[in-house]
């Protein structure tokens, strides 16, 4: 077995809030660390974010390395790579795991080359290889229908990015204690070549944890009014397939599938969706799938619990009417 001393987790924060996927990664890292006797260390960069270090400890980190500086307030490739590469070179962690958000991927890809480390991307399964103790990450390819099981055969740390919504975060444990070590940041503003000239962030919609989701596909013709109304009535969220998101009809935050969000809901009502492989991986964890499609041979019916062959523009208004009257 490879000896592990430490597993690092990148604690991504935006606007002073920890990303959910970072907590999910902490949960997974704790599980792996307990098997190999390693310590889980959270790597936290930002400005005035010390309270997030406390939060991460309650969610599974045993220690935190904190770099707190005004130049680190917003994620930037240059500054974050510089600071984190310095820490890795100094302390040599055995593994380093990131959430596969846009920023997590931007950072991990750059760091891997700077550090000469192997990187396994967007994993949906993560375990230890019995013979060697190396991390085995399963990476979905070809739209999610095939998994490639990968490992880092040389270079350290073993780097991994993890798809959001796959692993479970630990519930907060108020009694947990951990070390917080603050490190000096030597970056000077004048050394930084890039700058953020504008930033607009609304409340990020996270439909990955929603209990009910109504999803519209190409069959809606881009008209999501029925989808939205039904979602509202059943207290659920709206999702879309990739073509609708690509056409700019809906934001990527609510795009379901291999390159978007993976759902974990109890119920998904899927209307006008053909069922491409890259979409199906996004609803695989849904407990109950109802599909409505005009084409009886649509692939979505091979992956639904209840199948309705018919026109969504006829069926959904009827359904909406019935639920409205039900609710009075």
């Amino acid at each position: 077995m490879a000896g592990y001393k430490s597993i690092w987790v990148f604690l991504e924060q935006n606007e002073g809030v920890l990303e959910e996927v970072s907590l999910e990664v902490l949960g997974k890292a704790s599980e792996l660390a307990s098997k190999v006797g390693a310590e889980v260390t959270g790597i936290l960069l930002g400005h005035n974010v010390k309270r997030l270090a406390d939060e991460a400890i309650k969610r599974g980190a045993e220690s935190i390395i904190l770099a707190d500086s005004p130049v680190l307030e917003n994620y930037m490739t240059e500054t974050y790579t510089e600071v984190i590469a310095g820490l890795v070179k100094e302390r040599n962690p055995d593994a380093f795991i990131f959430g596969a958000t846009n920023n997590g991927v931007d950072l991990a890809g750059r760091l891997a080359v700077r550090l000469g480390a192997g990187l396994i991307a967007h994993v949906v399964e993560l375990e230890l290889e019995e013979e060697t103790g190396l991390l085995l990450g399963s990476v979905p390819g070809f739209g999610g229908s095939i998994l490639a099981v990968c490992k880092c055969v040389k270079g350290r740390p073993q780097m991994v990015t993890v798809r959001p919504g796959i692993f479970r975060a630990l519930p907060p444990d108020e009694s947990r204690k951990g070390r917080i070590e603050e490190v000096q940041v030597r970056l000077k503003p004048e050394d930084i070549k890039t700058r953020i000239v504008e930033k607009k962030v609304g409340k990020a919609i996270d439909i990955s944890k929603a209990e009910k989701v109504v999803i519209g596909g190409v069959g809606t013709g881009g008209d999501l009014s029925l989808i939205k109304r039904l979602a509202e009535l059943i207290g659920g969220e709206v999702g879309v397939t990739r073509p609708l998101s690509d056409q700019g009809i809906a934001p990527r935050d609510i795009m379901v599938g291999a390159t978007g969000v993976g759902l974990s809901s109890k119920l998904a009502i899927v209307a006008g969706v053909s069922g491409a492989a890259h979409f199906l991986s996004g609803i695989d964890k849904v407990e109950n799938v109802i599909a409505i499609n005009t084409d009886p041979d649509a692939n979505i019916f091979n992956h639904a619990d209840y199948c309705v062959v018919g026109d969504l523009f006829k069926i959904m208004p009827e359904l909406i009417k019935r639920i409205e009257s039900l609710k009075g």
Binding site: G118, E129, I146, V149, D284, F301, H303, D305, V308
Partner: peptide
């Protein structure tokens, strides 16, 4: 730095696949 140990089919969840038929 990385190798593919093996390829495997992504296992899809088993679904009921029950068709609902009848009048609207």
């Amino acid at each position: 730095y990385t190798t593919v140990k093996e390829l495997k089919e992504a296992k899809m969840r088993e679904r009921k696949g029950e068709f609902i038929r009848g009048s609207p």
